[in-house]
Design a protein around this nucleic acid. Structure first.
Lengths: 153, 153
DNA sequence: ATAATAATGAAAATCATTATCAATATAATT
DNA sequence: AATTATATTGATAATGATTTTCATTATTAT
């Protein structure tokens, strides 16, 4: 069970302690590709470490988000979701059904998209001096099921 | 004060009553280009109609979102924000500072971007039979101020 | 080992949002 | 214009997610 030594380093370097709960939460994300809610993380962590409390999970989630080790998502359903911020994947596409709230993951950025995003990023850096780490695209629409249930416009 | 007759129509056509609170909320959005929180809408409405309650504002916000007359945003700061869904503007770019939570609006889609998004949309329709109404891009990064306060990686 | 202090767990507190329910306003009908 | 049926409202309680509090515990430096 090697774990993620680089993320551990990142914590240490910023002066944070490398505690069991933090390692446990990080492990969950390394084992789980999906974006998880805080509660889901809590349950998963709980299986191996029943002593770790929900508040600590929340605190850890916030810390890791600050450290940019994970990403926080919100699709308007009232709860945040978290996903490991890999070094490779920097693009996040999601389809959200505005009718039923269903969320579908989608991930296959085209060359063209990557280019146009890069262009936008350049502009943002120039205009606002913003340093971009990542981006998300949310598509909002009506899913297959809901289209059948209710007619269009 | 002409108001938005087409949005009124949309409500009526779907069998909803055209009430004073609903008109008042719609007016706020027509007068206000920014994305507002529910509380902000409540205060703005309250200036002209002190009788309208917060719960009604929330209900109206949800209804208008369902009707797709407004769009709901969430940048991970714990509250939703709403903005008029104009017929012209279908692209929403936001920069979010993961350090301080600052949100900057940004809006100048390039041809290239529009093309690549259209491509993605086409794929989504084919693959998931999703009918796309709009999309949002959130850029996450570090704003100018926070870059100065705290060194990089 | 010991000290200094950051981090934790449990529970209370907070914040945004939703549900409840009696009262009211809207739209259709007379 | 008055009446009726019912969707909508306002006030408040309830909910659900997240944060704070504080005494206790664990981590790191000494």
């Amino acid at each position: 069970m090697p774990g993620p030594p680089w993320s551990h380093q990142r914590l240490r370097n910023r002066g944070f302690r490398l505690t069991l709960p933090r390692q446990a939460v990080l492990n969950i994300f390394n084992q789980n590709p999906r974006h998880l809610t805080a509660e889901e993380v809590f349950f998963l962590v709980h299986r191996n470490y029943p002593g770790i409390g929900l508040a600590t999970v929340y605190r850890t989630l916030n810390l890791l988000t600050q450290m940019r080790l994970i990403h926080k998502f919100n699709f308007g359903d009232g709860r945040n979701r978290y996903e490991l911020a890999s070094k490779f994947k920097k693009k996040y596409h999601h389809l959200v059904c505005v009718q039923c709230g269903k969320i579908i993951d989608y991930d296959s950025p085209t060359e063209k998209e990557a280019d146009s995003i890069k262009e936008i990023e350049k502009e943002l850096v120039n205009k606002y001096k913003f340093k971009i780490n990542s981006y998300q695209i949310h598509f909002y629409g009506i899913c297959k099921d809901c289209q059948n249930k209710q007619g269009g416009e």
